[in-house]
Amino acid sequence: MAKCGKIEEMIINGDLEIDLAVETNDTVSVHLAECSDCRMFVESLRKISSEIKNIDRIKVSAGFDHALKIKLEAAKPESSSQEIKTVPFFTRMVYYAAGVAAVMIGFMYVSSLGVFDNKKGNDMITAPVTFTVASNTDKTKTVTTDSLENLRENVANDEELRMKVNTGE
């Protein structure tokens, strides 16, 4: 505690900022010129501030940047789509062509199994199917058959018949 205490009181009251050149304040300047206690007090505060600025600082470790890079990669929400965007145009076209070719080969294979063969498919009906066949004589006949062959025979036997097919299910 300085014996005089005038400057200390001004600082405590917030009337003076020690960071600024207190000498710019005429009152303070005159007082400091006369009072060695307050001069020493101001100097000691400034010295503390400068010593704090000079204390040893720590630095980040050598692996800091690498660890940050890993964290960033993990945190980026669009990292995977960004990778695709960075693939060269030609390579991307090759990928697309390969995809299209794979789909076509798959389609051809499935097609070769006869899944899309209409005639063969109709012949493969095994569940009972109800066909409703109406004639021009406004009588309605109901025929239950398990194949289109039987239906064709029914139609062939009566050329005036108009056919409505009701699969029921």
Partner: peptide
């Protein structure tokens, strides 16, 4: 203003603690 007054207070406290060294 609060920043300034707290800083002044802090430095006065430090001055007391460091009086032997500074």
């Amino acid at each position: 203003g609060t920043v300034k007054s707290r800083l002044n207070r802090a430095r006065l406290n430090l001055r007391d603690a460091l009086s032997e060294y500074i």
